[in-house]
Design a binder for these strands. Structure first.
Lengths: 140, 140
DNA sequence: TCTAATACCATGTTATTCCATGATGGATTG
DNA sequence: CAATCCATCATGGAATAACATGGTATTAGA
């Protein structure tokens, strides 16, 4: 199981490309170099995790019941699945952030990767420092 | 096992043709590029899944004692099987939505594909935003 | 034969892959 | 201990492929 830790800031080019921090990549299974992301439901950030995490969420959804029991779109698991995208990491270690996701997180030219164990988050430097409080200035 | 996620909006032409989002296609088994669909039993949408999912539902129906339990058509599994159609994906990655299905979902010229894990749904943009609530505007 | 469904082809746009460069740090060797 | 070599990493740009989409041709069914 992957374990994401520490904090890294990388540049985002005009196409939305950004390098996934190497330590994050190395915790991913070597046969599936991809990450799944979605706009956070609670903050101005992007939530990230590995693919197996998505399958766990999917299993929580009994789709058979979903088709016959009303109230689907508001189901939390459905919300996560419908909003998440799986981004493949290219041979240079980069992903392309979807425009809408960047917009949600207020990301333009730099992205802060924050390891949180089984998951991580991607912030804009500005939003991250604001959310963290004033005791952060050495993000460079 | 395929896992459908994220949300995509594609155009529907006058013939009812629409591209299946490439990420959805790639989760399907390469030797069976088709999807099975039915009008949702609970909402103004089309339910979709791959063929193997249909067989699972069929097995549920087999476990159901048809000889002793009356009113089989009301069995959800029976309802799903009887209403489902399997649509083949053409060489350009498109399907043709049956007219009745489009009518059920209120689809005219655009279709929203919503990934929900083992299954997905197809909505009209209008109905989908209405069903999701007010907090969705970036469907593009 | 006429109509409708299906298969085929063409095109612009977008995304993905490939290649080159600079920076960094660790290890090896003089 | 210092200089050099090598591997990894982040980053930019350009070439290439994939995708969505509209149109036309061909086939099949009524």
């Amino acid at each position: 199981m992957p374990l994401f830790s520490s904090t890294y800031t990388n540049k985002v080019d005009k196409k939305g490309r950004v390098s996934v921090p190497a330590p994050f990549r190395s915790t991913l299974p070597s046969d599936d170099q991809s990450i799944s992301v979605l706009p956070s439901l609670v903050s101005k950030a992007i939530e990230g995790f590995d693919y197996s995490y998505l399958t766990q969420i999917s299993e929580r959804l009994d789709n058979y019941d979903m088709m016959t029991v009303p109230g689907q779109p508001s189901n939390p698991a459905a919300k996560i699945l419908s909003r998440s995208m799986t981004l493949s990491i290219d041979s240079d270690g980069r992903i392309v952030l979807p425009q809408e996701f960047m917009k949600h997180a207020g990301i333009s030219d730099r992205a802060v990767f924050v390891g949180l164990g089984k998951t991580f988050q991607i912030w804009s430097p500005e939003e991250y420092t604001a959310a963290m409080g004033q005791d952060e200035e050495e993000l460079m």
